[in-house]
Amino acid sequence: MKLNMVKALNLALRQEMERDRDVLVLGEDVGVDGGVFRVTEDLQRRFGSQRVIDSPLAEAAIIGASVGMALYGLKPVCEIQFSGFAFQCFHQIENHAARYRQRSQGRFHCAMVVRMPYGGGVRALEHHSESEEQFYAHIPGLKMVIPSGPRNARALLVSAIRDPDPVIFFEAKGLYHAAREEVPDDPEMMPLGRAQIVREGRDLTLISYGAMLRVAREAADTLAQEDGAEAEVIDLLTVAPLDRATLAASVQKTGRAVIIHEAPQSFGPGAEIAASIMERAFLSLEAPIKRVAAYDVPFVGFARERATVPDVPRVLAAARETLAF
């Protein structure tokens, strides 16, 4: 059936909860309200308020209690209403969820998923539009997953829920209702840590994920039409662990790379991706790797958001500079 990303994520949650009684959902407004973006809609009616918990408004205890549930053997899928509020539970993620397996030398682990809407493009106030994947991608012990469409969102969420380690799962708000896609009824999984080549090309590699993938694809189409250049487009799907082999193989073929992300540029995922390509494909490079990312300024207000969030013209300019180098 054709579903948007909200419905696709909802399907993943519903089917996983039907499959495994240890899976439960908690967060602010996830029950009666079905989540502010409706991702958990109808789950409380189906599974009861003990399994779909409208928690008090406190991020640290949502994650902290989920850690406790996971240590007991449950599989909590918690929702932080906006990724901008996750700094109030960052310590629970970094100090505990990511470390418990190591700290207890395998006696305990935190099989849990932290879902968070992230990113701009929805004309929202501060803390409702930012992109913070780099913080989680940097933490050993965590996986950082960002789908780019309904079908892979559903498959990746199923994989995340079944993963034995904690997974931070970012959902681009701009993609929630952006498109509908055929999503199979039967549960489908996608391996975490594996990128996908969504468009093949020989002249240049565009690397992106989440909401920026659309920008990368549009830029690739324009390059083909206007410049006769065939860009390969890679959808990371998992930011960490990074699929370094796929990135290197692509750049070994194309010799050029542009990385596009919505997070601020400095020390962002683009830096790690560029370093990885340098380490594995240095002798294939025909041009410096370029990054197109948000500028290194704090939140700018949505009236000026387009000045900093990468768009197609910026990607095109970077790609052409790279091609002409």
């Binding site: 850690v67 406790g68 007991y72 629970q92």
Partner: peptide, 9 residues
Amino acid sequence: PHAVGLAYA
């Protein structure tokens, strides 16, 4: 909070 989660579980 871990204690609370364990008790809930």
